[in-house]
């Protein structure tokens, strides 16, 4: 085996910087937006971006009912980040604790949870989320709940595997021989081993969750209509693909940039947390 070798890569820090910018935009949305994202002005509909003959008042143009594209873009980051972060955190809490329990205690709990995760893997996340979203009331909290219970298995599988490996380490046996209890053993000796994989799963999952939320919003599901989202803005531009392409183009670019930044950060973290994998 070759010795671990760190390559200096700008991709990870770049991803982090872009994400920080997007998070700042979301936090400061009311200060940054030139207009109310829901305000319609029929007299100023379908204005092109300013460099294509639009007006400086609407830098990225307006949509089919005269709403400011830039303001909707800025506010849209809020839903994407909120849903992405909270789903990733809640699914992580659920998946990591259940993965720890299943991997550490084994037996019936493990068998049951593993079958459950097999079952969930047999249904595509998007399909399951669509099916459940159809039946619950639309709303941010319900959407986050649905996405959490459809994605926790991502953590569960990885964490369970990592625990199974860590459980057989000599220092774990040593700690047990010294009379260390289950709770302490899990928290002090096993949890640190699975933190790295959990962080890697979290970044990859967050990228996917943001795409899921955007897809559901695009289909008009999940997030209530009163909130501007990137997915719904793309859907708004669907009827104007040729005549007013800016309506659909910019929110799509925003989703892509956010997800790409998370992916870059995730790859970088994976390399850092796993010294034996250089690439």
């Amino acid at each position: 085996m070759m010795p671990p070798q760190r390559r200096r890569s700008l991709a990870g820090p770049l991803g982090l910087a872009v994400l920080t910018l997007i998070a700042l935009t979301a936090a400061l949305a009311p200060l940054l937006s030139p207009h109310d994202p829901m305000e319609q002005d029929i007299t100023r509909r379908l204005l092109p971006p300013v460099w294509l003959g639009g007006v400086p008042e609407y830098p990225l143009g307006t949509d089919g009912v005269g709403r400011d594209v830039l303001s909707r873009l800025i506010y849209g980051s809020r839903v994407s980040l909120l849903v992405g972060l909270s789903t990733t955190a809640l699914a992580g809490l659920m998946g990591v604790s259940l993965g720890l329990a299943a991997g550490y205690f084994g037996g019936g709990v493990d068998a049951l949870l593993s079958r459950l995760s097999d079952v969930q893997q047999a249904v595509p996340f998007l399909v399951l989320a669509l099916a459940v979203v159809a039946l619950v009331k639309p709303g941010l909290l319900n959407l986050i709940a649905v996405l959490t219970v459809t994605t926790w298995v991502n953590y569960f599988r990885v964490i369970r595997g990592a625990v199974l490996a860590a459980r057989e380490e000599e220092y774990v046996w040593a700690a047990r021989a010294l009379g260390c209890g289950d709770a302490r053993l899990i928290l002090r000796h096993i949890l640190p081993n699975v933190a790295g994989p959990a962080v890697v799963v979290a970044t990859l999952l967050m990228a996917n969750v943001i795409i899921f939320e955007a897809s559901l919003s695009f289909l008009g599901l999940g997030v209530p209509r009163s909130l501007p989202t990137w997915g719904r803005s793309v859907a708004d531009g669907r009827d104007y693909l040729v005549s007013a392409w800016w309506i659909a183009l910019f929110p799509g670019l925003a989703i892509m940039t956010t997800v790409a930044a998370i992916n870059l950060l995730g790859d970088w973290l994976r390399d850092r947390l796993n010294p034996w994998r250089r690439r």
């Binding site: 990228a207 795409i211 897809s215 040729v242 659909a248 989703i255 892509m256 992916n263």
Partner: peptide
Amino acid sequence: LIGQSAPGFWLALLLIAVFAVR
């Protein structure tokens, strides 16, 4: 990276705009 990050519905619209309409 672009293929992994671009949402499918948006990519579909881009493809329609360029290869089907234009």
